[in-house]
């Protein structure tokens, strides 16, 4: 039954291991700058892919205009350097309003 539990525990253990890297290795090992950079860029690539698929797709189909436009609204707010909370609430509110207006 507990695929969920297994997932949480594996993710938790792995994440903690990553976090221990610093305190344990500190002063002994320095990550090569290139690797550090690759990790950073890789993380950004993952996040962008997540947000793109999250904004556009649901399962194997299109997520609908309400969500896509809402995320876009959040993006505009973020671009204009709105505070983090405003970005989040703005995106949700735009999507909610569109749905209220009957946009899927």
């Amino acid at each position: 039954m507990n695929a969920y539990l297994a997932c949480v525990l594996v993710l938790a253990a792995g994440t903690y291991a990553f976090r221990l890297a610093g305190p344990l290795l500190h002063g002994r090992v320095e990550l090569p700058a290139r690797l550090q950079e690759l990790l950073t860029v890789g993380a950004t690539v993952l996040l962008v892919a997540l947000l793109a698929t999250g904004a556009l797709t649901e399962g194997h189909g299109f997520a609908g205009w309400a969500r896509t436009i809402g995320v876009l609204a959040g993006g505009v707010l973020a671009w204009r350097k709105a505070p983090f909370a405003v970005v989040v609430v703005g995106a949700a509110a735009a999507t909610a309003l569109l749905r209220l207006a009957g946009v899927a």
Binding site: V71, G74, A92
Partner: peptide, 15 residues
């Protein structure tokens, strides 16, 4: 509209 919140969070994070 909470389903739009997560992609927006990520967007704000990576921008």
């Amino acid at each position: 509209g909470l389903d739009a919140a997560f992609p927006a969070v990520l967007l704000a994070l990576v921008l």
